[in-house]
Design a protein around this nucleic acid. Structure first.
Lengths: 337, 337
DNA sequence: CTCCACTGGTAAATCGATTAACTAGATGAT
DNA sequence: ATCATCTAGTTAATCGATTTACCAGTGGAG
């Protein structure tokens, strides 16, 4: 491996001069600079980012923690994050947690000892106290966690899930539905609770009998939606409208309904949440609440970048919340056209 | 930040002893060891991987280069790679290239200067000569590139695309189809050429008139399949069977056909390639050639790990090719049940 | 009683960069 | 002529670990 020292010797200058020529931090005569660049080229010298990082205490690396890249929702966020990174010459460590608290914790620890400059933590399962432990250790932006209690510590970027699912409820009510099933997410995930609550509250507000609403808890995965829907379809009377906590579950529900020979939306209407890429194309196309995933990733990463800059200037940046604008998207799974 | 030096001072020993206690490389009396661990705990010391890397010349980081995580096919490979990594306490840099040669090149350069220990390069667009430049610089495993010419340089893991698509052709022929359309991948992607060739050759072998086969080139993306299919459906006579170069394109083709009010598979049969997770669930479920994506990621990563180990022992490991076993999966998009 | 091997620990060099402090020479103002 | 300033470079300390070479003390063999 060729080091800066070797380049210096070969071009008859000191390492300091090579370093200055490279960084432009101090003036180096164009004569020498040219000479140096030539030997760098000919020797195939590549500066060691490791050594550099050790000295300047910066790595230009961030960590992205998500439950699962295989989930199109998270994959799109990841692309948004990367999009911003690319322009800044940063690298990204990717960690999947499978929604496992222990793995999430391990990921954060590992990222910290790798000296990442910041972390984007998507849909964390860790409690606020767990996260609070890392306050001050490094900048972190939390996504998809719309509880107030994290915000004092870290920045957050998310959709107002409560209002969003209320809109879905409204949509169902407008269509005249009177009996409902909710395929909810895990109880310990804040956004899952919010989505459920927003939906339920709206129904109550409109004086729908609470007993006419079935609530089942699942895991945000396709299989989960499929299984829960099979249970729902065994009930009599059968609910006429099903709200799934995300598109993957809605999709599973659709499959279960089709298997039973039910017509969607006539026999049963189904809506999801997220508007993942594929929801437009499955049959029937899914009614859902659109979340700007790519943009959310960008926003979160830009915010993280700001925090990193500020931190390096020893400035403190107050924690901030960004509430994303989403929108209801009505498609064939709830309404015939 | 608390350094090893601080821990040493606080426990009244030298840094060497702390280091030895931590690594177990040299014997440290249990008395001291305990004391050291206690102060480490109380001071919240976390060893700097940067400093360690600089000294021992290892980073325990690998790079994964893929066209796009948003594509479920690559996402699954990524999970397979990560699965192996996790057991070895490695971290992974993720780079998306969007199939862009320049970005791929930039990714490799960046990864090298980050001192990754190896790279898994999935479906590279770079030519063999481009890649050859990195031979000897670091271990690399190439995936989804089934050309012989890369193999002398780097390990590779892939499916025998030629034989696989021949099987799909056979399947169509068995069903009695006589006129075909191929929605192929980009011409400069080796596996795209192989898939096309395998299909075409099998047709010829069975004396299908070449003129009855339409070949259109696309981009492996949903939209591309959709657009190409629209062109195909304008032709008279309309082909009765469509082979798309991957599931995403097949899916797009399905949508285009449905839009025209065509029945699948009766009016037109459609098959894809890859068997991505969702292909089982779309309607009609897709006939496709299954590739073991997660397992392929695991295999590639295990192989890379071997190469890294060998390299660190100054041993040379010959380049090797792993041909994966896939299988034909027949579903409703080609055959009514 | 000496010598040697062994044990448990330390001092200091090292990895490859950055950068503060310094220097030698040139230029300019008074 | 003297001193301050500027220019273009160098020397050496530093980042935070690992590891080689060394040392002091102990115990056993001869």
């Amino acid at each position: 491996m060729v080091r800066m020292k070797d380049v210096a010797k070969a071009s008859g200058v000191s390492v300091a001069t090579v370093s200055n020529a490279l960084s432009g931090n101090k003036y180096v005569s164009s004569e020498l600079r040219e000479k140096i660049f030539k030997t760098i080229e000919s020797m195939g010298y590549k500066p060691s980012k490791i050594a550099r990082s050790l000295k300047i205490k910066r790595t230009f690396i961030v960590g992205l923690i998500i439950p699962d890249v295989t989930n199109p929702y998270f994959a799109e966020i990841a692309r948004g994050v990367e999009d911003v990174l690319l322009g800044h010459d940063y690298q990204m460590f990717l960690c999947n947690t499978d929604g496992n608290k222990r793995r999430e914790r391990a990921a954060i620890d590992s990222l910290i000892s790798q000296h990442v400059e910041g972390i984007i933590n998507v849909a964390p399962r860790s409690g606020d106290k767990d996260l609070a432990e890392f306050v001050g250790q490094l900048p972190m932006v939390v996504m998809d966690r719309d509880m107030d209690d994290v915000s004092p510590y870290f920045d957050s970027v998310y959709t107002d899930n409560y209002t969003a699912s209320a809109k879905l409820a409204e949509h169902f009510l407008r269509l005249g539905h009177k009996s409902f099933a909710c395929l909810a997410g895990p109880d310990d995930v804040p956004i899952a609770r919010r989505r459920l609550q927003g939906f339920i509250d709206k129904l109550e507000e409109e004086r729908i009998d609470r007993k006419s609403t079935v609530v089942l808890k699942g895991t945000f995965q396709f299989e989960s939606g499929y299984e829960l829907m099979k249970h729902v379809l065994k009930r009599t009377p059968r609910p006429s409208a099903v709200f799934a906590a995300n598109d993957l579950m809605a999709w599973g529900a659709v499959e279960a309904a089709k298997e039973k020979g039910l017509k969607i939306p006539d026999d049963v209407a189904i809506a999801g949440f997220d508007n993942i890429y594929f929801s437009e194309f499955i049959v029937p196309a899914l009614t859902t609440f659109h979340q700007p995933k790519f943009e959310a990733g960008q926003i979160a990463m830009r915010r993280l970048m700001e925090k990193i800059e500020k931190k390096n200037k020893r400035l403190n940046l107050e924690a901030k919340r960004v509430i994303l604008e989403g929108r209801l998207i009505v498609r064939e799974s709830t309404q015939s056209f």
